[in-house]
Design a protein around this nucleic acid. Structure first.
Lengths: 197, 197, 197, 197
DNA sequence: CATGAATGAGATTTCATTCAT
DNA sequence: CATGAATGAAATCTCATTCAT
């Protein structure tokens, strides 16, 4: 009796998304073949096209899915924190952990987005925008609450997002001095109070 | 002897690099064809292979070249500035201007690097590392000079690099509120003294 | 016993043949998909394979069916006409009307038959031959009755069949001057007494 | 040296057209693969795409080419004949010979035209129309000269074209009684003076 | 040195057919 | 009997790379 019939995600669709995440992160969008994805998902090549209209659609779907997941986790996480500073620090921490837990995904979003059909590219942009908006709202809150200085909140959100992404990427690439020992609170502190003493 | 070997760049090679920058930035690495690059450079398709061993090699060379250029400009620029804070602010400013002056390049480095042959991938990583090292050294200097707090300098360098890159990219994509009016000193201030009041 | 085996056409089989005629005539054999046919017939895709061994078999069956239908109508029609001339004129008229009534069918028989498996190709050829044989017999009758000149009857039958088909096709394609006003008796007259005065 | 450089038809293009005629006539449009055509032409698969934009374009080009050839031969041939009857008989004879000389072509034009892109389909239609127009003009001439009866000339042209095509095809398929002994003047006579005594 | 015609490996996508339900 | 989800063979077309001129 189909307890999982309704639970969304036809099962196979999920399998394919997971396989795609794995393959895309290892070989990048353009160097991965649909056949490899199918194989990784344990389905036939044609099956992929039953659930996604094209290779590009599949890729975009992976990005959307994960970004939405992160966004929701983030939103929920900071809801229960008091104070903008603490919220932002919490957000950075969660973000960092997410990136480090799903290293694969970091690779995927760095994959070639240029030359993607406009409409599909739009979909990833929307997902990204929606995601950065979470940070932005925390910053706005901090400004109006008097905790943060009067700064362009959208810009600050992108700056922080960029800081986290690059540090996470460098960490994945083992370009940081002491990767394992790295303490994310240092990064949060940098964002909150800057470099100067 | 060899007056034009090292210094003058066989002319044609330069032409090709310029054409490649133009084409790659418009269409991305994978969607650009060697023929298009050759045409943009005003040379024959076969000629490209006299100066570069492959399409990938050409792409990597473009990245290297530009990154090296930026690194040198940066190094020279901060040499004449006193004080780590001022140096960093200057570096951020120059960096920002460079990114906005050569929008093309920002697009290029976002092109698909994943799945690139190891050896070539290594080359871009080195160029990146060398580049971030400039920021790192400024930060180190600031720490030992007592201007900056005791922070992991490599991490901080990546964070700042990421902040600049993302804000520049968002600006290019018109995702910032007032793109034209944007004042880069705000970003420098964020890096130096953080969000908090 | 078996009241519905031979005579009544399992119902579903008929539905499929009708759907196939519709779809094949609109998109041609190769551009039609079995799924489209199934949908047009209101049955499941798999069901098609319960009644026909393959897509090609289905197509050939449609042609056979229709050709047999036309042949029988023709045979019956001319049975009641006296005189070879009148018979032929009648045959041409009926033929023409049939083609114009079921435009769809004209399109179908123009669909790609080449490259079809020998055995199946054979089946359509037989259907065609059987069909042309009706005209042939009328001509033979006319010759032995002294109404027609001594001509190779098979050849004449093909010639007339070709004349009708091409004119009907041109008519469908709107390549005739006054398609609607076209009088088929002109065509019959051409066959019977030729171009010359 | 270079006597044939200018002589039109880059040589390779011609080779491909010839290979295509051969392959298409044996397997039909849809069942032939571009690779087979390339092989038959003795060139690489990619080379085909240097001269033709698509498989369909190649097919249409073959039809156009041949139809134009036949049309020109026909036009030239009847120019030197006096009298509409003689002209038409001559045209039928030439037509017949052409069809029997290039059996392959008859097969090709019977190949699947349905489902071909509109624009390309238009090209074959134009070629066909231009071709039938030759017969039409002879008939018009005969009518105004008093040799032929007042008949719709376009319709008559299609009828005759159809008669020739079907008889030629039947002959190729060995469906005529005495294929080798077949005398085309019988067909011409049928067209000119009909079946009746 | 420079060129661009020629090549063929390889990738995406379609769809006839099967088979478990 | 009926179905349609799943499959994978096969076909078109692209484009990096070579090499004869």
């Amino acid at each position: 009796m189909g307890a999982n019939t309704d639970t969304q995600e036809s099962g196979k669709r999920k399998l394919i998304l997971e396989g795609a995440l794995r393959v895309f992160s290892q070989k990048g969008f353009h160097n991965a073949t649909v056949e490899e994805v199918a194989e990784a998902a344990g389905v036939g090549k044609g099956t992929v096209y039953l659930y996604f209209t094209s290779k590009t659609d599949l890729f975009v779907s992976v990005v959307e899915e994960k970004l939405k997941e992160l966004k929701e986790a983030l939103t929920e996480h900071i809801e229960n924190i008091e104070g903008a500073c603490a919220k932002l620090a919490g957000a950075i921490k969660l973000h960092w952990e997410f990136f480090n837990r799903s290293r694969e995904f970091v690779q995927v979003i760095l994959s070639d987005l240029s030359g993607m059909e406009k409409e599909l590219d739009e979909r990833t942009r929307e997902a990204r925008t929606a995601f950065v908006a979470v940070l932005e709202s925390v910053i706005k809150e901090g400004i109006s609450g008097g905790e943060f200085k009067e700064i362009e909140p959208r810009m600050a959100a992108y700056a922080i997002e960029g800081a986290i992404s690059f540090v996470a990427f460098a960490n994945l690439m083992n370009e940081l001095d002491e990767p394992s020992a790295f303490d994310v609170s240092e990064l949060a502190d940098l964002c909150l109070s800057g470099l100067c003493c």
